[in-house]
Amino acid sequence: MNEWILEFFGIQPAALGEAAVDTLYMVGAALVLGTILAVPMAVGLVLWRPDGIKAHKLGYDALNFFVNIARSLPFIILMVVLMPLTRAIVGTRIGTTAALVPLTLYIAPFIARLFESAILDVPKGIVEAAQSMGASTWQIIRHFLLPEARPSIILATTTGTVALIGATAMAGVIGAGGVGDLALTYGYQAFNTPLMFLTVVVLIIFVQGIQSLGNALARRARNRA
């Protein structure tokens, strides 16, 4: 079996496994870190907007501007721009862990925008009901806005995950491992067509699986009744 793989794909089976693990690691870690950053950004955008419950023009404009800027940079450029920051945080500019810095900062504003619109879709009356009960701003977020936006938030996270998979493929450029790197190194540079196709198939399965999972979770959250 192992020999067959080596012969057909021109690569050690262990390297295949390692690539898969690297991709999962980068997507998983960047998703967790990105979501942790995205939630406060989204909440800030919702609360501070001109008709929000904590309207704050300066805060809103600044946050909105930052998110727009971050969103307008293609990942490959963001990666290069962030190199000094990456080195400061991780100690090195290259490698799989180093790629987490640009990946996180790439995905956080993206998810923040999606979360923002998910929260804005919660009917205004829900907030009124909350205020009429004497809920604090924190309670409104925690007990009303986030739970009611949950189905849309799940879908937004799914979209974010798919976008991350795309970005991790590019992270091969700064020496990060993963499925994308495999395709670049062996498929593109060494004209290893079978391996190319393998990575394509694996990526399709990844994305399809995540999208189906996300849809199912969102559906369950929506008509739980």
């Binding site: 009917p123 009356g125 829900i126 009901a129 009429s132 009611e148 959250a221 739980r224």
Partner: peptide, 13 residues
């Protein structure tokens, strides 16, 4: 001071 609304404003989730 309780409040009741035309659109009910219940939490669907």
């Amino acid at each position: 001071i309780g409040m009741v609304f035309q659109q009910f404003n219940l939490l669907d989730g």
